[in-house]
Design a binder for these strands. Structure first.
Length: 264
DNA sequence: TCCTATGTTGTCAT
DNA sequence: AATGACAACATAGG
């Protein structure tokens, strides 16, 4: 579900389908008002008669440039995704907000739950500042990554998932990074050396790039990736041992105990 | 029936 | 100021 690689895949999907066509109507499904910000009336008014011109992404947030001015901002939360289709009968079951284009196609924002949302923003910079959103995990340099984490008095995993520090890492990417980098999620940030952080940073880049290249399609992920093993009965690719399931920072974490070193 | 879920946000406590 | 625990949001699926 939508973390950085998934949202980047949605962004590419949007770029390949829905850009440069005039929005002739916008529909809201019943009981979906909460997904529209700042309000359904304002969102609809802003989108009508405009085109989606281009897209950008910071972390799990997608920014879509509108032809007049400003941005449509989309957050997919846990179950959101886009569909671009022509026939009304192809409308997804969980469609919540639907943009209708003058070429007869439709772009729907779908979600099983009412968690994600569509919002408006004047500029990406304003939005990023208001939300205190950190640098995108694929953009941040090692030095900022290191400086942001090295002095934290906290278990590492919750800090990796803190969007104000580095944006885009959710539960599965955090587990994946820590697994491949051989670091226990409960390790204290301030006990890792610079080289440990460098290793973690390089691992993060590799995992994110690979995931994005594979369009976040887990079925195509390398066999050693943890994400497909994060389930009951899952075993470590490297050691064959059963993965431990524990809670770190309130989130379920899968750990290969003998592989991942605890820094404390 | 009960529990969990890969996200965010707000409150309250330390 | 930082950090953590917890609830709320909402719903499908095991």
């Amino acid at each position: 579900m939508p973390e950085l690689p998934e949202v980047e895949t949605f962004r590419k999907y949007l770029d390949g389908t829905a850009l440069d066509q005039k929005i002739v109507d916008v529909n809201l499904k019943p009981k979906s008002e909460k997904l529209a910000r700042p309000s359904w009336a304002e969102l609809k008014k802003k989108l009508l008669h405009q085109k989606l011109e281009s897209s950008a992404r910071i972390g799990k947030y997608l920014f879509i440039r509108l032809s007049d001015d400003g941005y449509l901002v989309v957050h997919f939360a846990m179950t959101g995704y886009f569909s671009y289709y022509k026939d009304a009968e192809d409308e997804p079951k969980y469609a919540k907000i639907i943009l209708h284009f003058d070429n007869g196609f439709h772009l729907s924002y779908n979600s099983k739950r009412k968690f994600g949302w569509l919002d408006l923003a004047e500029s990406i910079e304003t939005f990023q500042k208001e939300k205190d959103l950190g640098q995108d995990a694929l953009e941040i340099g090692f030095e900022d990554f290191y400086q942001g984490l090295k002095n934290k008095k906290s278990p590492l995993k919750p800090r990796l998932m803190d969007q104000n520090l580095v944006a885009g890492i959710g539960n599965w990417v955090a587990d994946e990074m820590l697994y491949q980098a051989e670091i226990h999620p409960s390790s204290n940030c301030n006990k890792l050396s610079e080289e440990d952080f460098r290793h973690l940073y390089n691992t993060m880049q590799k995992i994110l790039k690979t995931s994005v290249e594979l369009d976040a399609d887990y079925d195509r992920f390398p066999e050693h990736f943890l994400v497909n093993r994060r389930e009951k009965g899952g075993t470590c690719y490297y050691t064959g041992e059963p993965l431990e399931v524990l809670e770190v920072g309130g989130r379920t974490s899968y750990v290969s105990k003998s592989r991942q070193k605890m820094f404390q």
